[in-house]
Nucleic acid binder design. Structure first.
Lengths: 243, 243
DNA sequence: GCAAAAGTGTTCGGGCTACACCCATGA
DNA sequence: TCATGGGTGTAGCCCGAACACTTTTGC
């Protein structure tokens, strides 16, 4: 705070020494990218075409640059793979074992991102040799990435209980059966559809549209939209989302 | 994984180049150290006798060394201040704004620790000019440390709802009124003492001792101990702690 | 008209909340 | 004997869980 007005070269010498005594480490970010295909929760993984562990499956990641924030690095790296900006991302955890990356001492800040499974840039994705995997069948990943995935799933489950983040995984307009299937997939449960609609509709955060969608040549379902404004208003009034 | 058998000098050249292209950053850890004095939730802060921001109040922190894990660094730093080992600590969040530390580009991994307020090494604490502050009256801290404290409080509140971590802040033997006061302090509420004891005792994780304690010359209260073995057993049976 | 998924209400029980009085002790 | 905090039980209400049948459409 006190020193914000110094340019780097002007720091008092003792301050420069204070930092210079210490080690500097590579700082990576890795992204657990979730999607939802209508039935299963999915994960976007890349096949590494670079060392170390070339040819293995891996989370998308990259190194934090000196002049960017860690959050910005995470967004930049998500953009590089998907072409998407302004995506819901949460910092998950910092993984800091000195042996976790055999190539060099690298700590990694893992994030998880929720994207709509149809709205990404397919050209970028194929350029990175990326593929979607069901969370039921995740391959062996490099380093500690499987642990990151497990931790991300757990964090997503916790978060989705108390925050309306499921909508980040669905298209703008969706049906109640779709929404229920999403929560079924997240929690590997089979929610009761009556109780589920009662609960979600009673919150008053869904706007029912005057449109229906014909699913697979059966009875069409009503479309809904998540009403963000209404949700924020309710938050101010002390409302608490909960599944 | 594949490269674990290489010593650093033997890495393939392309791997060394892969890392060498990137920036290395200072990585700090900062600890939000909580205690409980019987009435209020307390925070252990140091007055910095080193630059930058010498003389200001600050969380205890330090830099991660190349050969230690981030968790180890956090434990080492907690030990340096308190002389305590094997303390309950949770990683909180990584703070990665490039301007957060005006001295140099430093990311910080914040932790929170729960210690018993009477069991620390007073000599070390005074050597670091450290003092306890009530969470009601936290002074202005350096950098983004106030934000860390707020985030740690929020995380502690969330965690303590679902995990029996409150006991980390109490002596081995404690009374129900003490425990209630602790939760009162954490949530800034006034729990109903009847409902509180009903709930906590019904979980079956407290062992009632055949001892009483004379508080302050009033009616003595029964002492209890948190039964860790029983708790772990219950966990296996699907039990879920909850306040 | 039949197959397939959408949509809709009620009942029951358990848990949370609110609430007030007596008890044990030290001064 | 009085002041102080420890300790205990009950009743109402709300919310979550369980559960089945009718409706709409395409084929």
């Amino acid at each position: 705070m006190l020193y914000l007005h110094f340019k780097e070269k002007e720091y008092p010498l003792k301050m420069k020494n204070f930092y210079a005594r210490h080690d500097r480490l590579y700082v990576a970010v890795d992204s657990v990218i979730f999607g939802f295909d209508g039935e299963q929760l999915m994960l976007l993984l890349i096949r590494r075409n670079f060392e170390p562990c070339k040819g293995s499956w891996s989370l998308m990641g990259g190194f934090v640059k000196k002049e960017e924030s860690v959050d910005e690095a995470a967004s930049r790296i998500l953009y590089a793979l998907t072409g998407l900006k302004d995506i819901y991302m949460e910092q998950l955890h910092c993984y800091g074992d000195p042996l976790r990356d055999p190539g060099a001492r690298t700590i990694s800040i893992a994030y998880y991102a929720l994207i709509k499974v149809n709205e990404y840039d397919r050209e970028r994705v194929s350029r990175h040799n990326a593929q979607w995997f069901s969370i039921q069948s995740i391959p062996a990943l490099v380093f500690d990435h499987n642990r990151m995935v497990n931790d991300a799933l757990e964090a997503l489950r916790q978060k989705a209980k108390h925050q309306p983040i499921g909508f980040e995984l669905l298209p703008e307009k969706f049906t109640l059966p779709q929404l229920k299937k999403l929560y079924d997939a997240i929690y590997q449960k089979n929610f009761d559809k009556r109780n589920f609609s009662k609960k979600i509709l009673s919150m008053g955060i869904l706007e029912r549209l005057n449109e229906k969608v014909k699913n697979h040549s059966i009875r069409p379902a009503s479309l809904y939209r998540f009403d963000r404004k209404r949700y924020k208003q309710l938050l101010k009034e002390g409302f608490h989302f909960g599944i």
